[in-house]
């Protein structure tokens, strides 16, 4: 075993003698950290259909799982022995339901400005959200499987960006009817087979395919998104913050940018603005003309 070379892979939680240790991050600098993880909850058709068909109940289950995920991220360091306590700036949990496969896909996003990464927090968040779904559905299907818990993306710190092998961009955090999804960059077949879940904050559904939200990106936002404009599937009114959350989940490189601004129909807008079908929404960093 050669763990003497500093540039070859080694277990950071084992010292030179092979003894367990906590990594000393005292000398590391704080940077903006982002991690996106996913987990899949796979249940039988009976359990899935019962949940999916229960408008109110579905929202209750998913909202409970969402809150559980946020709490779990905050307590990660208490359960994982060598995990550092760190200040979380954001924990977000999104769900996507697939009636064909009876899967609930959970995506967690964690952010922090700190000296070490937030992937453990994100892994914990989606794991516990998944277990909460299991807990609330196990009376109907004891054979529910929690699987495929993994890191999709992380950024920040010495190692920079990392994207899970096989992914060109992380999957949408939410593919739903009551919440919009960016469809331009994804095959139509995939869009059609991912009906998703209405937002737990039960909004009225709008007719599918009515009108889209036209998104335009400028300057660094366009570079990070890799596109200058695209059309968002229309579903229901959503706030500026909800739109930004979805964009950050789709384009994790945007997440560290932080202070993103919006203009709706070519007018500056606050993040609490309600975006409607047919709106043109511009996303950009603070302006720097003159």
């Amino acid at each position: 075993m050669s763990h003497s070379h500093s540039d070859s892979p080694s277990f950071s939680h084992l010292d030179e003698a092979g003894q367990v240790r906590m990594v000393d991050v005292a000398a590391k600098v704080s940077t903006q950290r982002v991690a996106v993880c996913s987990a899949r909850v796979s249940m039988n058709a009976q359990a899935f259909d019962l949940l999916n068909g229960h408008e109110r109940g579905k929202g209750e289950v998913l909202n409970t799982a969402r809150v559980a995920g946020v709490l779990a991220a905050k307590r990660c360091a208490e359960l994982i022995p060598l995990c550092h306590t760190l200040p979380l700036s954001f924990v977000g949990i999104d769900f996507s339901l697939n009636p064909d496969t009876h899967h609930i896909d959970i995506t967690s996003t964690c952010r922090s400005d700190y000296k070490t990464g937030v992937e453990m927090e994100a892994m914990m968040a989606c794991s516990v959200a998944a277990l909460t779904v299991y807990d609330m559905c196990k009376a109907v299907d004891k054979g529910i499987v929690v699987e495929d818990v993994r890191l999709l993306y992380k950024s920040g710190g010495k190692s920079g960006e990392w994207l899970a092998p096989g992914l060109s961009a992380p999957p949408l955090a939410v593919q739903g009817q009551a919440r919009p999804a960016v469809v331009a960059a994804r095959p139509a077949s995939e869009a059609a087979s991912a009906p998703g879940v209405p937002a737990a904050t039960s909004r009225a559904d709008s007719p599918q395919g009515a009108t889209g939200i036209r998104l335009v990106y400028f300057a660094q936002v366009a570079e990070l998104a890799g596109t200058r404009n695209e059309t968002l599937d229309w579903a229901a009114p959503l706030s500026g913050s909800e739109l930004l959350q979805q964009l950050e989940a789709r384009y994790p490189r945007l997440a560290p940018v932080g202070r993103l601004k919006l203009a709706v129909n070519q007018r500056h807008a606050q993040h609490d603005i309600v975006i409607q079908a047919g709106d043109e929404v511009a996303v950009f960093e603070p302006v720097t003309g003159g």
Partner: peptide
């Protein structure tokens, strides 16, 4: 007018330095 323009009008500057380094200017 020049003060308000700098923080309101949607323009963005990218600096390209003689050294080859380039970056978007921050407000």
């Amino acid at each position: 007018l020049i003060d308000a323009l700098k923080t309101r009008a949607p323009f963005w500057k990218r600096e390209e330095l003689a050294s080859g380094r380039s970056f978007w200017v921050q407000q």
